[in-house]
Design a protein around this nucleic acid. Structure first.
Length: 489
RNA sequence: GGCGCUAUCGUCUAGGGGUUAGGACGUGAGAUUCUCAAUCUUAAAACCCGGGUUCAAUUCCCGGUAGCGCUACCA
C-alpha cells in the first residue's frame, strides 16, 4: 500500500498555469495534493507552470494566489518555471546531443490538419526525424526556426507501462505515441519538458493531477527515462465536469467555475474544501460532513473514485445544492464569535456597521436560517435598519382574523411592553398572557407583533429578536404598524 | 479517425459472486414549534446493454453502446 506507508516522505506539487482565475477543478487538485502531503507528513510544493508566454498574465497569478489564500491551505516551497528556463533548455540540449530528440523545421500549424493526422504523419513528422545531423546543424546555423521533438522509439514494439495509484496498471504501445515537442521554435520549453524536468529536479515523489494527463503520462515516462531519472508515482484524479458532462472550462462556464465566486457568495472555505473533496473521493464510511483535520486523517488515494464527477449548477443557481447544504452545516458548526466575524464583511458591504456586541447578539438568531454568509444581509437587515422597509400592512393580520383584531393586539402589546422587562422569559410570560387575555392562540397573537417589529412574517424567534432590538425600537415599530393598519379597517 | 479511461438512485457516493443494493443532497408527505429555519419520522428514486464463467452475477471476463480525455511549437 504505497499510500499508507510511503517509502519516503512524499513531495507533491500543485502546478497551475496562470491563464485565468483559479477554478474549482484546480482547487480540488490542490486540496487533494495538500491532503496527501499532510496525511503523510510530506512536503507541498507550489509551482507556477508559466511557460506559455502568450497566455500567461500577472493578473491570473494574483487571482490564483488569492484563491489559494482563501482556502487557507499553506504550502512549503514555491517555484516559478519561467525562472528555470536555463535548466529546461540545457536538458533539451542534452537530449538532442544524445540523439533522443530532433529538430523539426516544419512551420507551426494550427492543428486542424486532419489530412496529415489521417495518414499517420502526426506520429513522426516525416522528413524531419530522419534529417542527418549535418543537414540539421546546417539549417539551424542558417537561422531557420525549429521545434525540438522527442524521438519516440519506433518499430520496436515497445510497451510503456506504469501503475497509477488510482487507475491501476496502464500501458500503451510506444508506436502509438507521437513525436511530441520539447522546445518551441521560440526556444521556450513545452509543458511536457518543463514539467518533467522540474519534477525530476525538485525530486517530486508523487504526481497527483487531473485525469486529463493520464495519456500524457506515457510521454512523461519517456522524458524521465531520457533524463535518467526515476519517474514519480502517478495518481490521476477523475475530472470535475459540468452537468452536460463536459469538462469544466472557464471559457464555456464562466464565473461559476471560479473559486472567488464561491467566496463572494459566502461559502466558508472549510465547507468549500469539504464539498470538493467529496467529488471523486470518499472516506468509505457514511460521513459527509468533515473538518479539515478529519479530511486529512481520512484521505488516501485508495479512496479516490475513477469516474468523472458532475458538479451541479445552472444559470439561475450557480451552486451545487450539496455544496450549499454543507456550507449551512459548517455555518452551524462554527462558534458564534467566529461566525459573526465571517459574516461581518457581508454586512458591511450592505452598509451595516453594527457594534461588535450587536453583531454577536444577532448572529445566533440567524445562524440556522442562512445557507450562505451573504444570506445574513437579508436575514438580519431589520436589526440594523433604523426605519423598516415598507411592507404590506395586510401581513399584520393573523390567520382567522381581521385588521381590527390585529389592531387590538398591537394596542394591547404596547401597553404590556411598556412595563415588561426586556428579557426572554419576561417577554414570553407577558406576551403569552396577553394572547390569553385577548382570547387568542399564541401564534395568532404573535404574528402582528412579529410583522410590526421585523417587517415580515418569517423571522427569527420573537422574544430573542425583541430583546436585541430593545423596548424603544419595538414600541415605535408597533405604533407605526398600528397606524398602517388604519387604512385597512 | 487512432489511442486511453470510465459506467450503481436526478446528483455525490458505499458495497460487492448469494444483500430488503446502504448513506447523503435534492424532491414529496408527516411530526414539532410563536412564523421561518433547524430537528425528527417517512416516501418515491439506481446496478447501461448483450454474451460468457459459475449452482449463483449488479459484482469477474469479453463484446457492444455511451460519455470523457489525449491526439497543439496549450497546460
Amino acid at each position: 500500500m504505497p499510500d499508507s506507508t510511503p517509502a519516503k516522505t512524499p513531495r507533491v506539487r500543485f502546478a497551475p498555469s496562470p491563464t485565468g482565475f483559479l477554478h474549482v477543478g484546480s482547487a480540488r487538485t490542490f486540496i487533494l495534493n495538500w491532503l496527501y502531503a499532510r496525511h503523510n507528513h510530506g512536503t507541498m510544493v507550489l509551482r507556477l507552470d508559466d511557460t506559455d508566454v502568450e497566455r500567461n498574465t500577472e493578473a491570473s497569478v494574483q487571482s490564483i494566489f488569492e484563491g489559494l489564500r482563501w482556502l487557507g491551505l499553506s504550502w512549503d516551497e514555491e517555484y516559478k518555471q519561467s525562472e528555470r528556463l536555463d535548466l529546461h533548455r540545457q536538458k533539451a540540449e542534452d537530449l538532442f546531443a544524445k540523439g533522443l530528440a530532433y529538430r523539426d523545421f516544419t512551420p507551426a500549424h494550427s492543428g486542424d490538419d486532419e489530412k496529415s493526422s489521417a495518414q499517420g504523419a502526426w506520429l513522426s513528422n516525416p522528413g524531419m526525424r530522419e534529417l542527418s545531423r549535418e543537414e540539421s546543424d546546417r539549417r539551424a546555423a542558417a537561422g531557420e526556426p525549429f521545434a525540438l521533438r522527442y524521438r519516440v522509439p519506433r518499430g520496436e514494439g515497445r510497451t510503456l507501462r506504469f501503475v497509477d495509484s488510482v487507475y491501476g496498471a496502464q500501458s500503451k504501445l510506444a508506436d502509438e505515441v507521437e513525436d511530441f515537442a520539447l522546445l518551441r521554435s521560440d526556444g521556450m520549453p513545452t509543458y511536457h519538458l518543463a514539467s518533467c524536468v522540474d519534477d525530476a529536479d525538485l525530486r517530486i515523489s508523487h504526481i497527483v493531477r487531473g485525469q486529463d494527463h493520464l495519456t500524457n503520462t506515457f510521454k512523461h515516462l519517456l522524458i524521465f527515462e531520457a533524463l535518467e531519472s526515476e519517474p514519480p508515482q502517478f495518481a490521476h484524479l477523475p475530472l470535475l465536469v459540468a452537468p452536460d458532462g463536459a469538462k469544466l472550462s472557464k471559457r464555456k462556464h464562466g464565473p461559476v467555475v471560479s473559486v472567488t465566486t464561491y467566496r463572494d457568495a459566502g461559502f466558508l472555505p472549510q465547507a468549500f474544501v469539504n464539498f470538493l473533496c467529496l467529488l471523486g473521493w470518499s472516506p468509505k464510511d457514511d460521513r459527509e460532513f468533515l473538518s479539515l483535520d478529519e479530511l486529512t486523517a481520512a484521505f488516501t488515494l485508495e479512496g479516490v473514485n475513477r469516474a468523472n464527477a458532475v458538479i451541479n449548477f445552472t444559470e439561475e443557481d450557480p451552486f451545487d445544492p450539496k455544496a450549499v447544504w454543507l456550507n449551512a452545516e459548517h455555518i452551524r458548526a462554527l462558534p458564534v464569535d467566529e461566525l459573526s466575524r465571517s459574516i461581518k464583511p457581508f454586512w458591511e458591504q450592505a452598509g451595516f456597521h453594527p457594534l461588535p456586541e450587536k453583531l454577536l447578539a444577532v448572529t445566533p438568531l440567524i445562524r440556522e436560517r442562512i445557507k450562505l454568509l451573504r444570506d445574513a444581509v437579508s436575514a438580519a437587515d431589520f436589526f440594523f435598519l433604523e426605519e423598516l422597509a415598507p411592507y404590506d400592512p395586510a401581513e399584520l393580520i393573523p390567520k382567522n382574523g381581521d385588521a381590527a383584531l390585529a389592531c387590538r393586539v398591537l394596542q394591547h402589546a404596547q401597553a404590556v411592553l411598556a412595563t415588561t422587562t426586556f428579557d426572554h422569559d419576561s417577554l414570553d410570560q407577558a406576551l403569552r398572557a396577553a394572547a390569553l387575555h385577548l382570547g387568542l392562540k399564541a401564534g395568532q397573537a404573535f404574528q402582528p407583533i412579529r410583522v410590526a417589529v421585523c417587517g415580515r412574517k418569517n423571522a427569527p424567534p420573537l422574544f430573542e429578536t425583541m430583546v436585541v432590538l430593545g423596548r424603544e425600537l419595538c414600541l415605535a415599530r408597533i405604533r407605526k404598524a398600528e397606524e398602517n393598519l388604519q387604512s385597512l379597517i
